[in-house]
Simulated assay, not measured.
Amino acid sequence: MLKKVLVVVVIAALIGVAVWVNYKSKNHLPEGFATSNGRLELQRLDVATLYAGRVKQLMVNEGDSVQQNAVLAQLSSEQSNSQVMAAQAGKDRAQETVSRADAEISARRQQEKVAKLDLDNTRQLYQQALVSKAELDRRQAAYEAELAAVKAAQAAKAEAVAAVGQAQAQIQSADSTHEDMLIRAPKAGRVEYRIAEVGNVLAAGSKVVTLLDPSDVSMTVFLPTNTVGKLKVGDEARIVLDGLDAVFPAKIKFIADQAQFTPKYVETADEREKLMYKVKLAIPTEIAIRYNQLLKGGMTGNGYVRLDRQKNWAPQWAIKLPQP
């Protein structure tokens, strides 16, 4: 009996040693590496209205995934409709003015031809001494008057054409305003908050929906001076999230140029180190998109950075992506 108890104790001791060694091997930080805990962050996009209006309809709910240019909400558009109709009516009037100017030019050119014939005949008669010099001058003045009338009609047409262009610009402006009553997603993302609701009256620039960009995922960590001095933007990093058996690749996206007080949620190795540098580790876009349903803002974990680029990553930090 005693022998059996000793065997059980020895086995338990061996298991304990194995667990402890495994724990130490996984959590011991080799020389040339540094780590800090942090939380996942997804880039937030505040989608706002360009013009004032009342929320007529909301097409999305919190948590919905949307594609770029998808309609998120619609504001009341009665006023913009009126502006479009008024601009179209102005264009129609301007086009009618152009048509009248064309008719006036045609009529004046016919009168010009008649005046030219009269002038030519009068010149021949004057050479034959059949009409006076005064009559010739009168015919010349009549012809020149018709030339001036043609030019005036052409100028009126040019003015009418310009009015058509101005009216078209007003139509485009009104159409743009009308289109902006539809609040669209600037890029693909996931709805985080519906800030406005149906019936709310919004001022220009008011936020309607907040989106999260699943392609822009990062973790902010805080590291001491002696560590940050060995890092540069673009260096490789690793992110290990709590509760996931995975190691995500990352790159250093940002390093603060000034130290700051360590946030309370960051557990530093030495509590005397009160000033730390903010470092942002970004997961590659293609991986962030592939696991966009898995990676969520606020997930906790650890970020690991390599201080010596000549060292290889330890096996426990080899890239290991979650199974689909």
Rank of each mutant, 00 (worst) to 15 (best):
D180P: 02
Q110W: 11
R139C: 05
A155S: 13
Q127D: 13
L50V: 15
S65E: 14
L117E: 14
V150A: 05
L45P: 04
A48R: 04
V55D: 00
Q127P: 13
T122L: 13
Q127W: 12
A149Y: 02
G53Q: 00
E144D: 15
A155K: 03
E179G: 09
A48K: 01
D46E: 14
A174G: 02
L45G: 03
L58Q: 01
V84E: 00
A167P: 02
R44H: 01
A163Y: 02
L72P: 00
Y143I: 04
V161I: 08
Q68A: 15
A73C: 06
V131A: 11
Q154K: 13
K113S: 11
S132T: 15
E62I: 02
M181L: 08
Q95I: 05
L45Y: 13
E159Y: 01
N69D: 13
Q110T: 03
D102N: 14
Q172A: 10
A152D: 02
L119T: 08
E135S: 14
G63S: 11
I105T: 06
L117Y: 15
S77K: 01
K56E: 05
A174C: 01
D64V: 03
K157A: 01
D137T: 13
K91E: 07
D46F: 09
L119D: 12
E62F: 08
Q79D: 13
S65N: 11
A134R: 15
S99Q: 15
V114L: 14
L130S: 15
A167S: 04
L117M: 14
S77Q: 04
L125G: 14
A48N: 12
E146Q: 12
L72K: 00
A107F: 09
V98T: 04
R54Y: 12
A142S: 08
L147Y: 09
A169Y: 00
E146T: 05
K133H: 13
Q124F: 10
R100L: 05
S82L: 15
K151L: 02
G165Y: 06
A103K: 08
A87Y: 00
Q68T: 09
V114R: 08
S106I: 12
G53S: 10
E135T: 15
A94G: 05
R54L: 04
Q172L: 11
E104P: 05
N61C: 10
Q111Y: 09
Q68N: 07
S176D: 08
M59A: 12
K56M: 06
A89T: 06
